[in-house]
Design a binder for these strands. Structure first.
Lengths: 205, 205
DNA sequence: TCAGGACTTGACTGCGCGGTCAAGTAGCCT
DNA sequence: AGGCTACTTGACCGCGCAGTCAAGTCCTGA
């Protein structure tokens, strides 16, 4: 869309995105009509189409915003830590914190992955997340902190553990983010730090 | 629905379920209309509603069938293996094999998880999968094969690693199931076994 | 051969929803 | 004041789709 917005307009837009995020997460994207959104905010339908070209555009915008914010949070958390494994750990912890205060977004991303129309948006975000994680893993390999393995696969595994425990433990049972992060790190660490004598696993290119 | 079906009727039903599985996976549940399904099979719309009460019922039926089949495959794979960690490994390998020949189902389950109407069906399946995995983990803990930790969380982590590598490596890049299984097991093993025990279990081709 | 149940047809209905638009109103700069 | 632009309204349109149904046809067992 890209319209020139006054501060008031900006505020309306945010209001729409916030409300839509909550409704989409609670009710589902398809089951939440544009009419429901504008009614919920007590405005006319035209307001919606003033700020967004379509329901789809709004959703993509929500995703982009969320992914950007999470990534920023992670980089801020890592800060000036220099020990590779500690960097990875900080990234995991900050993601978990972030998800715990943005539960709706988690639900939306899971949904978006299953919908062809949002696939490209999601893939981009996932590529970024994977590249970031992979970089942290590679640093750890380079400094000898963990044995040499396929960094991409290991990075995906770490993301997988984070992701499922975020879903089940953090969102499902409502356990504290720090506890869940502990468990993710515990599982990943013993997975990452092999014993010194046993570096030779059957590698697959 | 539960109608008395002749062998021919049974066959039609399966035809519908098979075609629908493919279309739903390729095109999405919402974007695939009942009309598209019956047209694709060259039959009238009434046929569909003779065998299923609704599109939703059909989908749930597909899910149930798939989950049952996967579970059966796992138990058959485990067979009479008695070493706990080897049992877990066999379960992982058989899942990966199964997913590689039922890619459509994977996509459908991921979708179903995001849709409120299918949540209960999915939760049930997930509870079963978790309970099965948890049991295998607990056996390994009891025999001292791996250190004592929260079996539920560890089981979820294992499922998470399997799940994400199935998605990215098996379905995404189209790598062989056995290679991906190797990587899942490699990551999980070093996560599970804290010490350099090198009692690697036999591979089953 | 015929009854009756299993299966099939496809036009039709009803409706929910995404998106449009002509006609406003509010706020701000000159 | 007056004019320009940002914003708002809500009735309306048209489409696509899940689901119905009255009227068939096919098959099987007695």
């Amino acid at each position: 869309m890209a319209r020139r917005l006054t501060p008031r307009g900006e505020q309306r837009r945010n209001e729409l995105m916030g409300f839509a995020t909550a409704r989409f997460a609670a009710n589902g994207y398809h089951s939440t009509s544009v009419a429901e959104l504008v009614d919920g905010l007590g405005v006319g339908k035209g307001v919606f189409y003033w700020y967004f070209d379509s329901k789809e555009e709004l959703f993509i915008e929500i995703l982009r915003d969320g992914e950007r914010a999470l990534r920023r949070a992670q980089w801020e958390a890592i800060g000036d830590e220099s020990v590779p494994l500690a960097r990875l750990e900080l990234a995991i912890r900050s993601s978990m914190d972030w998800w715990s205060s943005h539960r709706d977004l988690y639900v939306l991303i899971e949904f978006a992955r299953t919908e062809a129309s949002f696939a490209s948006s999601i893939r981009k975000g996932e590529r970024v997340a994977l590249a970031d994680t992979q970089k942290l893993v590679q640093e750890a390999i380079d400094t000898g902190a963990i044995p040499d393995r396929n960094a991409v696969v290991v990075a995906q595994a770490v993301l997988g553990v984070s992701s499922i425990l975020a879903r089940t433990q953090l969102l499902g049972r409502k356990r504290p983010a720090s506890d869940v992060a502990d468990e993710v790190i515990d599982f990943c660490r013993h997975g990452l730090v092999g014993s010194p004598t046993d570096g030779r696993a059957q590698r697959t290119a």
